[in-house]
Design a protein around this nucleic acid. Sequence first.
DNA 1: CCACCCTTCGCAAACGTTTCCGCTTTTTAT
DNA 2: ATAAAAAGCGGAAACGTTTGCGAAGGGTGG
Lengths: 339, 339
Amino acid sequence: MRKVTIKDIAKAVGVSYSTVSRSLSKSPEISLETREKVLAACREYGYTANYVAKSMVMGKTEIIGLIVSSMDNPFMSELSDYIERYAREKGYNLMVCTTSHNEKQEDEVFRLLVGRQVDGIIFFPSFSTSYDNLKPFIDGVPTVFMSENLRDLPESYIAVDNREGTRLGTEYLHRLNHRKILYFGRRKHSTTHQLRAQGYMDACRELGMEPSFMDSDHPFSSIQKGYALARELFARPLAYTAVAAATDSLAIGMLQAAGEAGVRIPEDLSLLGFDDIIYAGLPVINLTTIRQPKEAMATTAVDMLLDRINNPMTAYSHIILAPSLVERGSCQRLSCQNN
Amino acid sequence: MRKVTIKDIAKAVGVSYSTVSRSLSKSPEISLETREKVLAACREYGYTANYVAKSMVMGKTEIIGLIVSSMDNPFMSELSDYIERYAREKGYNLMVCTTSHNEKQEDEVFRLLVGRQVDGIIFFPSFSTSYDNLKPFIDGVPTVFMSENLRDLPESYIAVDNREGTRLGTEYLHRLNHRKILYFGRRKHSTTHQLRAQGYMDACRELGMEPSFMDSDHPFSSIQKGYALARELFARPLAYTAVAAATDSLAIGMLQAAGEAGVRIPEDLSLLGFDDIIYAGLPVINLTTIRQPKEAMATTAVDMLLDRINNPMTAYSHIILAPSLVERGSCQRLSCQNN
DNA sequence: CCACCCTTCGCAAACGTTTCCGCTTTTTAT
DNA sequence: ATAAAAAGCGGAAACGTTTGCGAAGGGTGG
């Protein structure tokens, strides 16, 4: 059951195996006649070219590595989906590694991928730490970061304009007559979240509101965390009329706690998310949120990476995409006397 | 910026490159002294072994291919997450290909993966068609199917007991005094769904109920489809007290339509899902459902595959896992007079 | 009819490893 | 002390491709 190689085809047709290779790679210097004999033999024997051998001589694998924290976040899985599709369209396959929000894992899979000789890496870093032990490897492989978390590293990155996103959202809530808005999410460990908090503060300053925060030490956003935090919040009398959450997951967690606490959304409290994950659009959830342009982020990231792969001398590029507000049902205009 | 190879290390240390290779692969026939010199040089020069070269001589890549329809289904993304983690734990990397429920794509990526020389493939087929043009390739690579859709093919597969799942669920609804239960989902194109429908019919026969179905031609389950179908259903007076949906996605779509139509779940209609995707557990959704043991399915699939990779002569194995009922809030006991 | 060019193909090197085989050199046993 | 065994290492083949170079053959122009 040995696999059939180019040499088997050559022997079958009665030509040298370089001729077979050339026939397959539409090189012009092969007569139509022999080429067709070769192709026929390939079909007959079920020949499939060995990519690893090809990779070795060509010096490229046409594989791109993808490093993400986990697929259990719908934002990540949607994005990976777009990335995989677009990359394959461009002739590249995807090798996916998850890190479980573990910095040591991030390090480990990065080296693993360079050992695998991937042509490039798309990397969603979970943190904004130094990544010192990544630096020796980082310029061995073209990399594009899908966040501003590592924007000090000399590499390309692409991200949504997080600061503008929350600014936009806060402004929107203000237009709805809200004056007491809570920012619900973390501000540490990650530039992404610092920027989101910044945008909120910017808007507060512009509009003359007092910023207030609810945070936790836990470095990640999840429904569970949002739920736990919101329970604390609802245990005391409500001091806010609106909440700007740092992520949709946090917002959905709060939604759940609100249901249990008898807090009605949006009648008692307006709730704004961030990301526009697919479940935000579910009518039962119906979350007004700040949208990240996921498909554009995915295709642009791949294009940036391919660009760096094909022209290694080009400079790094940094692309920031515009967020947008998608209005659904979780935010309500406040009548003025309620203020 | 050429990559540093084993020969560079050899030259640096002053030994032959076979010695370097042996030092790295903890072969016993190298003195401690030289081994340490080699390791030191590797660190200094930042050497990482080239897996593609290694793959070629070893005749294996330690990559396993994963073929799924799409990651936008949370069931799939959760499963892939488990698979990726467990596979890497076992020393394998994952190459993911999506097919967009397209049979031609399934074919194409399968061949692509064998060209990539993956050691094995985990494949979620979307259909139960013949896969004739797959057959010549299928015994070139160990494969395990994660569904019974292709159970006639001479290959291993693993799946949940779909038939038992819906039987269980229907029985449960019957215990809740429901006698008019609608089966909401497709029955064609896929053995998986035929089996689910079967289980429902089995229970109906056992319990003396008349089966009824609502279906559509569209071959896939999605929230959108469930929504559209349910709208039709709710446009007429309700003839059922309970619905057994073929998937959570369909159920969630129905949930949405119910909200719009003023049908209260579970007061007016009990709703049962299938899969237990992560969003079924959200309080705002709170769907009672039949659970597929996702983590067990993932790890078992990987184990089955590795077993076939390591012992090519072993027979195919077929594993069917037990589903379980998870009770949440979408089903209600019917008081008898309502019947 | 000869020289030259173009077409078509074969040979062999190269990619970076692992591993078998064999050669020294050292250790052990007698 | 000597023979045998063991330890430590180098040489080279092999994995399956691509591709530069050279060679043979046929065709064309003078």
